[in-house]
Design a protein around this nucleic acid. Structure first.
Lengths: 197, 197
DNA sequence: CGCGTGATTGAAACCCTTCAAGTTTAGTGG
DNA sequence: CCACTAAACTTGAAGGGTTTCAATCACGCG
């Protein structure tokens, strides 16, 4: 067992070994095989997931049956549906494994306990929330203003390590374009770079 | 003075009259004329704004000089740039009055004091954050999946009262389409409704 | 090998934008 | 109260970026 969750909390939330041991009974470890669901749309999201190893994705399915990827979660990322989790509503999103994935699952009880146990955990939690908002905001901004090519360039710049692990059609879905369009964008970028050199 | 901020806090954050009086020295009242800036891109966002009367909007300006509206804030809404505010970074957004607007301005000190003074304020603040995330998420989802017409229908459904106060080109900007496109969408909707009746 | 999934390519269609007129509306000063 | 102006909204025609649909290619795996 790698226990990267422990290391992560120590590093970013200053949770000591002793504090972690207190909290450990409240968390659950689980494995997901590729394609397996961690959350199905319609269910209430009872857990947040921390990815120790592997890769998850969250996505919605529109009325036309098309998937739209909300987020990828590789190692040391959190994923879940805060809206559903916090307001106890059925979730509109699915969370599913891309690779074989080991996660830590934790719920509201854990968060409350952690905030009591470790003073810095509350601050960490706040920072997580604020950062999440910042990231969502920036994505909205991009969807409003950038072309397919600009979005793709921004994606590989920001998540370069993912481009090798995620099938291309999922990246297209994340960017809000069709797989065909992304393929053409990539071809045009490649031919343009050839001409330059 | 209407003091709708006081009423709002009493209603949603269970802040008593006495608690409010304690906090009042930390807030600032201000008026903005139409077109006036409450925050200019490049500055750090030092305050959150609560709109007592009037209407604000926040927007970004892309490299091509086009405006993209992030949010409208009518009476009893909060507006600000959480990212800039929390991480102390220069903001990328402008906040500006559409109508003559009275606001309450408050900063981190107010929030911290409020959380100490009123136990329920912390919960309220958390709910505000979570709700914000939920709303951003839903907007991303819509930008990924909905056509101009669907977005417009969703907008008038959700913010009907705003459609009468906000110029149409700003609604277009919020939806991520050109004013011309929105005009056509509206015409098509109108003629279609005529045929039905 | 053959199957399935993902990636690519082409051609046509579609939605939306752009640009360039008009038209309407609202506000201002005579 | 009207005339004038500027801004907002509308409309048309042309163009661009993306999608759609269909076919083909590439690859990994039972």
């Amino acid at each position: 067992m790698v226990e990267s969750f422990k290391n992560y909390l120590a590093l970013y939330a200053s949770v000591s070994e002793k504090e972690y041991e207190e909290l450990k009974p409240l968390i659950r470890f689980r494995h997901f095989a590729p394609g397996e669901f961690a959350l199905m749309a319609g269910d209430v999201c009872n857990y947040h997931f921390f990815v120790e190893k592997g890769l998850l994705r969250s996505y919605t399915v529109d009325p036309g049956g098309k998937e739209h990827i909300i987020q990828f979660a590789p190692e040391n990322w959190f994923i879940g549906d805060r809206g559903s989790y916090y307001f106890r509503e059925p979730s509109g999103i699915n969370i599913r494994a891309i690779e074989p994935t080991d996660v830590v699952m934790f719920d509201q009880l854990f968060v409350e306990k952690a905030m009591c146990t470790s003073a810095s955990y509350a601050m960490f939690n706040e920072r997580l929330l604020q950062n999440h908002i910042r990231q969502l905001q920036s994505r909205i901004n991009q969807l409003l203003s950038a072309s397919a090519e600009q979005r793709y360039l921004h994606f590989i710049e920001t998540y370069f390590n993912l481009t090798l692990r995620v099938p291309q059609w999922m990246i297209a879905s994340y960017l809000g374009v069709t797989p065909e369009s992304l393929s053409r964008v990539r071809r045009d970028l490649a031919t343009r770079n050839q001409k330059i050199s």
